[in-house]
Design a binder for these strands. Structure first.
Length: 331
RNA sequence: CGCGCAGCGAAGGCC
């Protein structure tokens, strides 16, 4: 039975909703857990209608099943449906849990609704729950209300690395990069260890501000924390140095990254573009292919841009041919 | 043992 549940889950994660359904149908006595796994497997693959069918087919849906269904709506961009289901849940469903609020907050992009949810969180006494607090401050940030995000942050009795990273990221998303860097400094002073997500956010802040000096300090933190090998962090560093016109540093970081992906390559191409080294951009396009990394749309846009900058028709035609060839190689 | 919290990396065009 638990083996079958695992099968359903595996097919769901492997983008095979049909097989997930088949494995589920083979279960003589599906439990609540089986049903929830099925709902999630279908939702992950955009089979929202089938997920809802499954939700209705099980009897006595527990709170986890309701949460899963609300989550399916949110993750498929159907936030109105998520809210409606949440309202239904309050009318004739189980008492919401902390996860319910996290799901609903995730689907909320309207400040007015956000305040209403906040009131309910107080009513159900989930204010002190750290995951709810984190989701709440993120919701305020996504609604472009960084002051309420700050208030939420300050009101939290317990904070973890997600709490700090969430507020930093919301500052960055709202164009308040200086505040993001300031908060990052406080975080270090309070001995909270950043993770790679935190580092990427503050590196992005430096990129936007063109603050290479701060960027270097963050690089030191990255090394100290042992995130030097992380590809996303490396990409953010290449990008930061590139945008700050520190090509040697960008190249240096680039060479230290093992497992470079197309974003890594495109970031370095961007660094060369910044310095108007268009020939080098075109060389990189070939080097990356030689390295077994497939260029994508963005990579080609960079390369074509370089050809235009060079006003080199021949190079443009070669790149064009490259693009056509690459698009035939799909699958 | 089923649901859930931050990031979601790189490019160009128009205003």
């Amino acid at each position: 039975p638990s083996l079958s549940n695992c099968l359903v889950q595996m097919y769901g994660l492997c983008a095979s909703p049909r097989d997930a359904q088949k494995s589920f149908d083979a279960l003589p006595f599906p439990t609540h857990i089986s049903w929830t796994i099925l709902i999630r497997a279908l939702g992950l693959n955009a089979e929202v209608h089938k997920a809802l069918e499954a939700f209705h087919s099980m009897r006595n849906q527990d709170v986890v099943a309701w949460n899963a269904m609300i989550g399916v709506y949110v993750q498929n961009g159907l936030c109105e449906d998520a809210m409606n289901l949440f309202v239904k849940m309050q009318l004739h469903g189980p008492t919401p849990s902390n996860v319910t609020f996290v799901c609903v907050l995730d689907g909320c992009s309207e400040l007015k609704i956000g305040y209403a949810i906040h009131d309910l969180i107080i009513k159900f006494q989930y204010e002190g729950d750290i995951t709810v607090g984190n989701a709440l401050l993120t919701m305020y940030g996504k609604c472009h209300n960084t002051s309420d995000a700050e208030r939420t942050f300050l009101g939290m009795k317990v904070r973890n690395v997600v709490t700090w990273s969430a507020l930093i990221a919301q500052y960055v998303n709202n164009g308040e990069e200086a505040d993001a860097l300031r908060l990052f400094r406080v975080m270090l002073l309070e001995d909270v260890k950043p993770n790679n997500i935190t580092c990427i956010s503050v590196l992005d802040a430096c990129t936007t501000l063109g603050e290479v000096a701060d960027g270097r300090k963050i690089y030191a933190v990255v090394v100290e924390c042992g995130y030097e090998k992380s590809v996303p962090v490396g990409n953010a560093l290449v990008n930061m140095y590139g945008k700050c016109a520190s090509l040697p540093d960008a190249k240096n970081v680039f060479h230290r990254i093992s497992g470079r992906n197309m974003v890594t390559w495109s970031s370095l191409m961007g660094a060369y573009t910044q310095m108007i080294f268009y020939n080098e951009v075109l060389q990189l396009l070939h080097l990356m292919q030689h390295d077994g990394v497939k260029p994508d749309k963005v990579t080609f846009l960079c390369a074509l841009d370089a050809c235009a900058g060079l006003t080199d028709l021949k190079a443009g035609q070669i790149t064009h041919a490259c693009l056509v060839e690459s698009s035939h190689e799909q699958d």
